[in-house]
Nucleic acid binder design. Sequence first.
RNA 1: UUGCUUCGUCGGACGGCCGCGCGGUAUUGCGCCGAAAGGUAUUACCGUGAGGAAAGUCCGGGCAUCGCAGGGCAGGGUAACUGAUAACGUCAGCCACGGGUAACCGUCGGGAAAGUGCAACAGAAAUAAACCGCCGUCCGUUUUGGGCGGUAAGGAUGGAAAGGCGAGGUAAGAGCUCACCCGCGACUAUGGUAACAUAGCCGCGCUGUAAACCCUACUUGAUGCAACACCGUAUUUCCGAUAAUUCCGGUUUGCCCGACCGCACGAAAGUGGGAAAUUGGGUGGCACACGAAAGUGGAGCUUCUCGGUGACGGGGAGCAAAGAUAGAUGGUCGUCGGUCGGAGUCAUCCGACAACAGAACCCGGCUUAUAGACGGAGCAAUAAA
RNA 2: GGCGCCAUGGCCAAGUGGUAAGGCACAGGUCUGCAAAACCUCUAUCCCCCGGUUCAAAUCCGGGUGGCGCCU
Length: 128
Amino acid sequence: MKEIAIKENHLYNKTFKRGNRFAGRYVAVSVLRDYAARRLMLANPQKAYVNRIGLSVPKREGGAVARNRAKRIIREALRHIEKKRALKRGWLIVISSRPTIIGAKSTDVERDLAYIFGKLDMYAEDRA
RNA sequence: UUGCUUCGUCGGACGGCCGCGCGGUAUUGCGCCGAAAGGUAUUACCGUGAGGAAAGUCCGGGCAUCGCAGGGCAGGGUAACUGAUAACGUCAGCCACGGGUAACCGUCGGGAAAGUGCAACAGAAAUAAACCGCCGUCCGUUUUGGGCGGUAAGGAUGGAAAGGCGAGGUAAGAGCUCACCCGCGACUAUGGUAACAUAGCCGCGCUGUAAACCCUACUUGAUGCAACACCGUAUUUCCGAUAAUUCCGGUUUGCCCGACCGCACGAAAGUGGGAAAUUGGGUGGCACACGAAAGUGGAGCUUCUCGGUGACGGGGAGCAAAGAUAGAUGGUCGUCGGUCGGAGUCAUCCGACAACAGAACCCGGCUUAUAGACGGAGCAAUAAA
RNA sequence: GGCGCCAUGGCCAAGUGGUAAGGCACAGGUCUGCAAAACCUCUAUCCCCCGGUUCAAAUCCGGGUGGCGCCU
């Protein structure tokens, strides 16, 4: 993924506790301004702000196959959204799945995610 | 044809568009690093990319580390026999026992005639026996009876009660004796590599339990890739005593023995060097191995061939890059195929559904989950020839 | 990824081959005008599930399910 993935457990906890959260039909999204964004920008060879993205799919929603598929579908939907509209940069974004994602199509999840990002005011204004 | 048994194979296919990981190749421009060569990122192209169970982690190995593992005790594991294998608790064949009409299937299947323990309740009695009954004798006697002794045929209990049945025998009875049968053990003969089977002869009649302790035979060092090696970050602690072959402490298992280790300079503060723990990071291990290559080796895959009942083994040929790290191997659309339901002019049309499940150092097995499709071999019954 | 532990009534639990202790809670009763306390009584057919050994299994053996812990 282009974005740096969130690995640390404490960042997940922080985003869940302090971030803005909005839930849709298939997924729920929490966002929080990244305190380390400026440091990451300097470390980045392109010197650009990046979003750090984490996916959370709990174990009770299925075995490894079902959870891998859920994560793939979310990533696919995210990729399509980024191609159409630019998001704000320098945020922590955690996307949690909901049980309804079993059997969903990536186009459904894409529509859901686009609606949630609109509600969370995550679209950059400078680009249409 | 119907009903089964068993072995094996597959686990949707093709195409368009958009993507992901890894490896390789490429150059012009752009960004960054560099004096440069070049590197990195990006882009383009090529190659490649989940399973039969990848799972459970139940066994066995490779590999790595520990003091290079040396001895003893303890502890763990396995259990008919013969073989296969790198090894195994796996596999093959075979024996015994049990199930099935049969094909075939199942079995942790050594020793209870070495010793110890346990066998609740019931029952008179549970590894040795007299409650009732039967018989004899004595006492008492109107009647019921009581004492002593013999007796395991009959009764009731139990998972299990001293082999079964008949005859002789007896006061009554009893393998007490005899014939036949059953079971166990030793010996001999025959067959078999063997477990074992069959026959003969002699002896015996012995409860069950070893997935209770135990005995016998064989076997077993421990820990696991989060091992381990290297690079760099921060903090803390430690690196004996003594005259001494002695004490103390430490070093991968529980105990004992054996073995090994406990730094240098300085008067001191300290300095240098080293080690350990904790916090969190990177690279290797790690994608058949070694090697520059040719090649060599091996427990890899496919196929042919020879040997073997078979597991498997010998030989030949060809092929050998999945290697991620919050974790790639996909998304979407279309066509065809599968199953089910409905309609139907028997051409077809419409709708729905798609098993179990995701590599994480690598192999050999076992176990468990699994929609459906295909193929081979065999059995029983029925029908026809 | 690897290593280990546990599962007994609604809750905490003892029990290591012979018919499952105890405490709390619930319910009923005695007592009281009513309640509390006290006392008495009741609750395990499947001891997480499936097989096996045994006359007999919560217990022993094998397989599975669920939960928990440790190692970077």
